[in-house]
Design a protein around this nucleic acid. Structure first.
Lengths: 373, 373
DNA sequence: CATACCGTAGACACCGGTTTCTACACCTGC
DNA sequence: GCAGGTGTAGAAACCGGTGTCTACGGTATG
């Protein structure tokens, strides 16, 4: 409850400009208030806080006591303004409720905390325009790093503007991180943390083929309006595995679909209605797999007795489905941790690809006689 | 690639105080650089940005062009320092990967965006000390609102320090929001958004009782070291329903457990090993229910033929379990949205309780003859 | 013709820490 | 007894916007 303004100075130049006078109790305590109470200068208080300059023990004690008594809280904006890092990383994703995104978020948060950073989260709902706007906002915030998660757009003007941001952030001492999406180009200063999308799809398709499946439906290929790199890579792995096994695949079994539960469900119903022949379904994500499972079950098709089912992502619930879902594990948490670590420790390699591997559970079996249709 | 500094000005008063000279390419563009390029004062540029003061159209155009050419980015810290709101809300939760938390987060993010705010996320991993530290950090950030999600601690010194923060934030024009946890006291300036934990538990227990169940195991009661209010309320609903029905409940069937999948699993195995008699299990959360389900299945007990199972929270996967889980719906997204809305629009009521309701699916049936054991 | 007013724009202090440069007391050494 | 060093502390400029006060050209008014 100390007056925040020192009145020792003569009445001549005082009060003249004091916007403080209005609200009687708007008491924000500044470093100078602490200084006044401790009987030292603001400089000394600052030094006590930072601890990087010798301050006599007795002085330090007085200052600390004054801080406590006044309930002093540092103003990060003032600190940031005078050149210090903001100690903040920004994290941009499609949707917090995406089960894998949440785990990336956890990894980011974990590592950010470990490195003494706070964490901003922004969602884009898959809108590239909003993503660009959000990145711009992060430039205003002077974030230490801006982490973009999830498959990016391949649109040219989008890539160009994103490259611009990468350069701008770089010049400002910050960093653009692409997490789970491919680089923007060799000359663009970014940190890239990918995982082996194609390899996982290749491994899973190989697993299905080696179990004897010859007609595998892939649900979740690219739609004309969504050319996300994640999809492209997963489809490529699917194709490459067929080539390796010398097994041709039926293009009619490669079904474009978004990555939601409802999309898997709808696609499968359509597939069944069309009378397509298949012994296994490879869903491009576990969410899609859940939809596929529901549609199959509804049609009286048993999994895995009649049709095998594989997913992608290894979301936490994959193991709790009935049957437990065979899927591709993606190191989501590690993805987030790595993104932050690399962005803040620039001496490390700035492009890594994390491995994926298949997790065999109960939803895949060799095909029986009773092939669908 | 435009030179960020305008050199037209005479050499008379320039360069005098220019710490910029050192690093050749550390080009941060300020409002004054824009002003120089547009041939106006910094004040005018500021007015063009804010748009709350008349600026001649021709001047505005010149300024906007200069901003574009220099790739000017506003500095939010400078703005925040000179009194403006930070346009940020902070969001503090246990764990981003908790399925219900993610939905609260989504609601918070949604509403924050709608109100032109950015969103900080911090996790505490259930540690009250860390929660206090995080709230302190948010005070430093001058966030417009600090939203605490999830059952809080009942510890006295914790409550006292949290009350202190509430008062401090209030004085600073900010707001502490308790989301899904009870008020700290009448004199503490907080916004409280709860949901009817007890009512949901009451409704679900009533549902089970009305189906004829008389021996219902409650998995997920309070442990001595975790007296979270969420648990307490759910147990109370369970008890109150029994009273209403005039059915005594067996205290041995009220099992303390944490809220994880593994906890439900372990508790159920213990229950079975002990030879407890029950026809239904009410899991205190859906995650617990998943563990319970796994343990029952492992023991050869069918759900719902042999034992009925009910959950709490209505997480997105509840409908995809086999059998689809009967559970209590919690309006998580609305919880998040409401929290932000009330905190930023202070004229509304600052304490609301959202409703919960049961969602009947396939995991509950009237008890058959073959009761366990 | 002088005064008043309107629209527009600049000067300058200020927000709250940080940093550089300077200052002073005290001690050491010759 | 004085030059030089060391430990500690303060004054003032600065970071980059914003608010307030003043100023100036031009038109409307008495």
């Amino acid at each position: 409850m100390l007056s925040p303004v020192d009145h020792r100075e003569g009445p001549d130049l005082s009060r003249r400009v004091s916007p403080r006078e209005a609200g009687a109790d708007d008491e924000r305590v500044t470093i100078r208030d602490v200084a006044a109470r401790a009987g030292v200068s603001a400089t000394t208080v600052s030094r006590v806080i930072k601890g990087d300059y010798p301050v006599a023990q007795s002085t330090r004690t007085r200052v600390l006591r004054a801080m406590r008594e006044l309930d002093y809280v540092l103003n990060v904006h003032a600190r940031a303004l005078s050149g210090a890092s903001t100690k903040m990383v920004a994290f941009v994703l499609d949707d917090v409720t995406g089960p894998s995104f949440a785990y990336v978020a956890k990894g980011v948060e974990q590592q950010a905390t470990a490195e003494g950073r706070l964490c901003m989260v922004c969602t884009t709902h898959g809108d590239p325009a909003r993503e660009l706007a959000v990145v711009e906002a992060m430039r205003e915030q002077r974030a230490d790093a801006v982490i973009l998660v999830g498959g990016g757009s391949l649109d040219d003007t989008y890539r160009e503007r994103m490259s611009h941001f990468a350069h701008a952030l770089d010049k400002a001492g910050s960093r653009l991180v692409l997490c789970g999406r491919p680089p923007l180009g060799d000359d663009v200063p970014t940190t890239v943390v990918e995982y082996d999308n194609e390899g996982g799809a290749y491994a899973m398709t190989s697993h299905l083929l080696s179990q004897g499946h010859r007609r595998i439906a892939l649900v979740g290929a690219s739609t004309p309006d969504d050319l996300s790199t994640t999809k492209l890579d997963r489809v490529r792995g699917f194709e490459r595995a067929h080539e390796s096994f010398g097994v041709p695949y039926d293009p009619d079994l490669v079904i474009p679909a978004y990555f939601g539960r409802a999309d898997g469900y709808a696609a499968t119903r359509r597939l069944i209605a069309l009378g397509a022949e298949f012994t296994a379904v490879f869903a491009a994500t576990d969410m899609v797999a859940i939809g596929v499972l529901a549609a199959l079950r509804e049609a009286g098709i048993r999994v895995p007795e009649d049709v095998s089912l594989a997913g992608y992502d290894d979301i936490p619930f994959a193991a709790d489905l009935t049957p437990a879902l065979t899927t591709v594990h993606v190191p989501t948490e590690e993805l987030g941790r790595t993104a932050v670590r690399l962005a803040l420790n620039r001496e490390e390699r700035q492009h890594v690809v994390l491995g994926t591997h298949i997790v065999v559970r109960d939803s895949v079996r060799p095909p029986g006689r009773n092939m669908v249709r």
